[in-house]
Amino acid sequence: MIIDSQKRSFGKGEKVSLFTLGTMRATESLEKMYNIIKNAYSAGINHIETAPSYGNAESLIGNSLKKLAREENISEKNWVITTKVLPKGDFKFLKSNFKKSLKNLNLKRVNNLAIHGLNLKKHLDWVLAGDGKKFISWILEKELVDQVGFSSHGSYSLIKEAIDCEVFSFCSLHLHYLDQSKITLAEKAIKKGMGVLAISPADKGGRLFSPSNILIEASKPFHPLELAYRFLLAKGITTLSLGATHNKDFEFAEKLRNSSEKLTIHEKNALKKIEDVANERLNSTKCEQCRCCLPCPNEIPIPEILRLRNISIGYGQLEFSKERYNLIGKAGHWWEEKNSSFCQECNECVPKCPSKLDIPNLLKQTHSLLIETPTKRLWG
């Protein structure tokens, strides 16, 4: 028997579970997608997130949902579906590709459509005044979606502008326990009545499904990933994406399916211990992420790089930090473009830092610690 799970309002659309199934990692076969969606249902998940960019994910989802309805009596009406479009192309191209998405998903309409990767100012301009505006008007007028939102890997100021533009009803943001820089934006969106999805708090949030011994010891009696999930849910983040590849990936989603209450004293104590351990390991070299060092004359994303240093040294998540650092300059507008090697030691950042950090030296140390041959991105 399936025990119902808590649902939260997601903008103007259907309510969604506290966890969302991300489908980027389940595209190997119909059998894989079918089993992942079936297990998501058992874990209380009703929200599926996908995109045409995820290979054949949409068609696999469409076929899996039909199979689940036929073989398991799990109605297709149980699901809330979010798909995406990239912020480019003319009106004709956008219409054609969206119709392909509906066909692949075996749907006449979809619950939510996100502008996928609203990362640059020109992307938002495309939405507000270009063919994106025309497309959004058409898709809403034809009632082919309940609502339109966006996902973004962009700057704080760009995301704020997108939240304030009154076009979008939900947003997907990088909201992580180990990177809280966008939490205030999420709170702003929630206050406006928007739905907020946290992008990959397990993987891009620090690869917390594979925690260091430092994190494991500091977070006892909890698992670090469980605490990271609870931190976000207690903040009121609507739903957390879970890019499952195996049945065991649903362990905490099932355990926390109704866990939106405020943090308990035991959870707070564990989180404090994690921070105490990290502070002790970083000592006086911790970057507080205040961003006072910006702008850098050489356009180095100093806070992002020193955040990776914090994570690798303070929390022991070295492999995650290496992966992210070595994607700099190799992922287009989806990630930062310049690493520490671009520092010319002009020292303009040093007097701006409230913590009086020797930033040029820390950047050099971080480069030596993290640089290696980059790995291929999952998609794109």
Results as ranks from 00 to 15, higher is better:
Ala114Phe: 14
Glu31Gly: 08
Gly117His: 00
Trp79Phe: 15
Phe10Leu: 09
His246Phe: 11
Gly22Asp: 01
Val148Met: 06
Tyr229Gln: 03
Thr20Phe: 06
Leu233Asn: 01
Glu251Asn: 14
Arg109Lys: 14
Ile61Asn: 15
Ala43Lys: 09
Trp335Tyr: 04
Ile199Asn: 06
Lys142Trp: 04
Lys66Phe: 09
Leu263Met: 02
Ala244Trp: 09
Ile328Gln: 06
Gly332Asn: 00
Leu240Ala: 04
Lys108Gly: 12
Asp358Thr: 10
Cys171Trp: 05
Ile163Lys: 02
Asn35Ile: 11
His174Gly: 13
Lys338Tyr: 04
Asn213Pro: 06
Lys286Phe: 05
Asn258Gln: 04
Gly193Pro: 14
Lys268Phe: 10
His246Ile: 01
Asp276Trp: 05
Glu319Ser: 11
Leu306Trp: 07
Val196Cys: 02
Ser53Lys: 13
Ile159Arg: 11
Asn46Pro: 13
Glu261His: 14
Lys92Ile: 05
Glu323Ala: 15
Ser5Gln: 08
Gly332Ser: 01
Ser355Asn: 14
Tyr325Asn: 08
Val110Phe: 15
Ala40Thr: 11
Lys92Asn: 12
Lys142Pro: 08
Ser260Lys: 13
Cys353Lys: 04
Glu304Gly: 05
Thr82Asp: 13
Lys100Thr: 13
Asn339Cys: 01
Arg109Trp: 07
Ser155Val: 04
Lys12Cys: 03
Arg25Cys: 10
Ser321Cys: 15
Thr83Asn: 10
Pro374Leu: 09
Lys160Leu: 05
Ser96Leu: 04
Lys248Ser: 15
Ile265Leu: 14
Leu306Asn: 01
Leu256His: 09
Glu337Thr: 13
Ser181Glu: 04
Ile163Asn: 05
Phe222Tyr: 00
Lys15Trp: 02
Lys133Val: 09
Lys352Ser: 02
Asn298Ala: 11
Glu254Cys: 08
Ala43Glu: 14
Cys349Glu: 00
Ser219Phe: 05
Phe98Asn: 12
Lys273Arg: 15
Asp179Phe: 08
Ala253Val: 00
Leu263Asp: 01
Asn97His: 13
Asn97Cys: 07
Ser42Gln: 12
Val16Met: 06
Glu319Asn: 10
Leu318Gly: 10
Arg324Glu: 09
Ser219Met: 04
Ile311Ser: 04
Asn283Ile: 09
Arg8Lys: 09
Ala114Tyr: 14
Gly62Met: 12
Met1Cys: 11
Lys192Gln: 06
Tyr54Val: 06
Phe209Lys: 07
Leu256Thr: 04
Ala69Lys: 15
Tyr34Pro: 09
Gln180Arg: 03
Asp179Val: 11
Gly206Glu: 00
Phe135Ala: 12
Ser259Lys: 00
Ser151Phe: 03
Tyr41Cys: 11
Glu261Tyr: 13
Ser259Asn: 06
Asp179Cys: 11
Asp276Asn: 08
Cys287Gly: 05
Ser151Ile: 07
Lys248Ala: 13
Arg70Tyr: 13
Leu21Pro: 09
Val148Ala: 03
Glu226Thr: 01
Arg324Val: 14
Ala198Phe: 02
Lys188Tyr: 12
Gly62Ala: 15
Gln344Thr: 11
Gln344Val: 08
